[in-house]
Design a protein around this nucleic acid. Sequence first.
DNA 1: TTTTAATATTGCAATATTACGATAATAAAT
DNA 2: ATTTATTATCGTAATATTGCAATATTAAAA
Lengths: 107, 107
Amino acid sequence: MGLTKSQIFSDRQNELAQIFRVLAHPARIAILEYISEQKSCICKDIVSEVGLAQPTISQHLKELKSIGLIQGEIEGKKVCYCLNADKWKSVQEGLNDFFDQTSINCC
Amino acid sequence: MGLTKSQIFSDRQNELAQIFRVLAHPARIAILEYISEQKSCICKDIVSEVGLAQPTISQHLKELKSIGLIQGEIEGKKVCYCLNADKWKSVQEGLNDFFDQTSINCC
DNA sequence: TTTTAATATTGCAATATTACGATAATAAAT
DNA sequence: ATTTATTATCGTAATATTGCAATATTAAAA
């Protein structure tokens, strides 16, 4: 079918999966790495750096914004993207909680 | 198109994305959590616990196995699944490296 | 105010993923 | 040997994702 049955899972499970999903594309990894390396993080520069078409990058940026990992500040006709440090930290902590709580209790 | 252009990204970026992709489904989160909670972790039990059809669970288990997060031991006609503790730890460390290295250097 | 530059949105084609019925494979139980 | 139980695989339908050309939007520059 292709339709994830989200309703049978807990909110926490769906939220975790959603975070993983946003990170589950090499272009979005590359964008995050590039943004974090640069002082200036203009969309146009991301396009040339990553090597995908501008609408494609814009779409990936939208997904990263959807969970708050990055934020875009409008500066004239440019948009300056940067990481959201607080969200970045809290996502990392959330994932660590998942890894820690899913302890080993093997057969 | 629907075809990720993996060749324009680094191995590391593709590998990270691949790990995130495998974790990016609530059923697989639920399976990992359930396996870790149980002493015995037979496929049939996962099917009743998670609430998806047996072929669907089998497919999800295959994906989790593909990156080594779980392993299945054949016991007669049953298969006993458990977490791979070493891989679990190394994946967690790899993701933490990514989060730490992607430092904040904002505009 | 027209042009130019930067970014977002829309529409669409192609591939990927999800889910499950049907069926195969395997091994224990009868 | 046949049946039963457990898991894996195949085939297929439906939804999701990826990527980009075309176009819209917005604001600076000329």
